[in-house]
């Protein structure tokens, strides 16, 4: 693995130049927010920011995407694929927690038995350049409680660490190596590596928000019917903001939109928080109230995903904590479950 030192003032320009050659998605200022979006050629991304409000999952698993087209003809239905090819994509400025979310999504979309070609096509063409967190972006960050770290390299192709005057760039995978020349810089020495290790330890200590995420698994296994669930959801507005901003939430709904003889089959993000999510055709809903929906959200993240894939489906980015309009804080929920 090659390690290089890149001068700080050159980084944004390097990425801006790449934006002329491939599709580059990066955090950009949008009114009062920082949001991931596709850069124009030469456009420079933000380098100094906490994190984007939206998770970068949208570029691998879009909010709405056409799966296929169909036309009714005299001879029956004619089907055609309608996959948009975004081409080689650089996801720049991804925080390590969000990069980890890609490995968690891979577990679901890339299984031996079920492979999701729509996700995988984009995933294979994406190179992830992460900006490590030399200090936790938010007080609500809790990556270290769910298996992550401020300088984690899981799901990362190129990891950038801010050393003060320059970045240490680690080209971790063949996909990352392929971009080594574009990033330039000079070879890194032992001093830079040591400095990075010190930063990694310090940054991890700085994460003060800790939750007993692993400890609640056996409790969840045994407490499906606990009265705790009766009141947990009470203030929830069922808006699903938590699930839309979540880098690991991946539930979707498939729907056909038809105009006369032509139609498209689209897949959209869905959310376990919505009343319609599990509503069946005959009108029955096995999760009739927000109680069952909240239980599902907690169970899915901290129990079922652990059972199915051996990992917690949460990367500790804290987006849901900050964005929930009624401050239903997942950290408090997990802490309360640990007390059961």
């Amino acid at each position: 693995m090659e390690k290089r030192v890149i001068r700080k003032e050159t980084l944004a320009g390097i990425v801006g130049e790449l934006a002329g050659k491939m599709r580059v998605c990066a955090p950009m200022k949008a009114e009062d927010e920082v949001l991931f979006r596709v850069l124009e050629a030469g456009e420079k991304p933000l380098i100094e920011f906490a994190n984007a409000k939206n998770a970068p999952k949208n570029f691998l698993f879009p909010r709405t995407e056409t799966l296929l087209k169909f036309t009714r003809t005299g001879k029956g239905m004619v089907f055609a694929g309608d996959q948009k090819d975004g081409g080689e994509t650089l996801l720049f400025g991804v925080r390590p927690c969000d990069a980890r979310s890609f490995t968690l999504l891979d577990m679901l979309f890339d299984q031996e038995k079920y492979r999701d070609p729509y996700y995988l096509d984009k995933r294979e063409k994406a190179t992830v350049v992460a900006l490590g967190c030399v200090r936790p972006p938010y007080t609500t960050c809790f990556c270290t409680s769910v298996g992550g770290a401020p300088l984690s390299s899981e799901g990362v192709d190129i990891l950038l660490t801010d050393l003060g005057e320059a970045y240490l760039a680690e080209f971790l995978t063949p996909k990352g190596e392929a971009l080594r020349e574009a990033f330039g810089g000079t070879p890194a020495g032992e001093a830079e590596e040591k400095q990075k290790e010190t930063i990694a330890t310090q940054a991890a200590e700085e994460i003060r928000s800790r939750i007993p995420a692993r400890e609640i698994k056996p409790i969840l296994d045994a407490r499906f019917e606990d009265p705790f669930w009766n009141t947990l959801h009470q203030k929830c507005l069922a808006c699903g903001t938590c699930t839309y901003l979540c880098p690991t939430c991946h539930c979707f709904d498939i729907s056909d939109e038809v105009k006369r003889a032509d139609g498209i089959r689209i897949r959209n993000w869905d959310s376990c928080m919505f009343p319609m999510f599990t509503k069946e055709t005959l009108g029955h809903n096995p999760r009739p109230s927000q109680k069952e929906r909240w239980r599902q959200r907690v169970m899915h993240k901290f129990r079922y995903y652990v059972d199915n894939f051996g990992a917690i489906a949460c990367v500790g980015c804290g987006r849901c904590v900050m964005a929930c309009p009624v401050n239903l804080d997942i950290r408090k929920v997990v802490a309360d479950i640990a007390k059961l």
Partner: peptide
């Protein structure tokens, strides 16, 4: 009181 500074949240 909410879990974030300068916030309050509905309670029952």
């Amino acid at each position: 009181a909410g879990t974030l500074p300068l916030t309050a949240t509905p309670c029952f």
